[in-house]
Design a binder for these strands. Sequence first.
DNA 1: TACTTCTTTATAATCATTATAATTAGTTTA
DNA 2: TAAACTAATTATAATGATTATAAAGAAGTA
Lengths: 147, 147
Amino acid sequence: MSEIFLKDALVTLKESGVRITPQRHAILEFLISSEIHPTADEIYKALEADFPNMSVATVYNNLRVFRNAGLVKELTYGDASSRFDFVTHDHYHIICDVCGKIVDFHHPGLEEVEHLASHVTGFKVNSHRLEVYGTCPECAANVKKAK
Amino acid sequence: MSEIFLKDALVTLKESGVRITPQRHAILEFLISSEIHPTADEIYKALEADFPNMSVATVYNNLRVFRNAGLVKELTYGDASSRFDFVTHDHYHIICDVCGKIVDFHHPGLEEVEHLASHVTGFKVNSHRLEVYGTCPECAANVKKAK
DNA sequence: TACTTCTTTATAATCATTATAATTAGTTTA
DNA sequence: TAAACTAATTATAATGATTATAAAGAAGTA
């Protein structure tokens, strides 16, 4: 499954004239296999063993390349580090307020909201961002124990 | 209208034991009257004339105080500066990809999405964040002209 | 193989935000 | 009202994520 994603991604990149370097291959592979929506630094640390000389700038540069190619989405959170998500099919995120864990869930797109927003404001709508916040089952259990 | 918001906000603060200083009064007043969802630095600059000795830290400190009191919402955008929004009734934001302008629009809350997310993931849901992105009428007009 | 261009690396710079310590000002209570 | 207590402000330094820069290295091409 993830091998297919990786192959498709490499094809997409090549077609848009982006060279496939070992670093790019490794970053993509890690992003696809990872379930943790990693930060740039987490990617950097994860690949340290295989690429002891890789620079953090390389990670950032390539995440931007992937984002521009539409392969990767950047999830931003103010001053804290951005997290990066390999784009598969459309999904949303639910984020634990306690431990910060990000879990995917599926929901039909909110075209209706986009239409209303467009109608009311006169904007030409491109996209939207939706995140749900709450407490994950594990953290909820811990809170109960602590009582 | 905005005077009522301000008075209510001051009462809320006092009730939770927060001292009302001239700086806090001015920051709140500016936030309420402003339509631009300002950054901390924009607030700082806007009040420079009245408070030449005010520190940026004061702006940040108080925005946090207001956020903790539920009076203000912080809108975060990765490495770029956060923007701050005085909380009135529930509304969402639509943001222009070209010029960055943020416009409010109203839409019934998305309880149904929250329920689905909660059901699928087992999270206890607290809140959600929704933003729509697009091109504002002014920028759309400019693009046409440029052609 | 030689050339051109893109990529990586190492490092320094930037910028938003937070921490610290000293000073100042609200608030409380006698 | 004045003293005392505590919180808030200021000025400044520190932090941490991200980006810019310049030199060195590697990929693609003639």
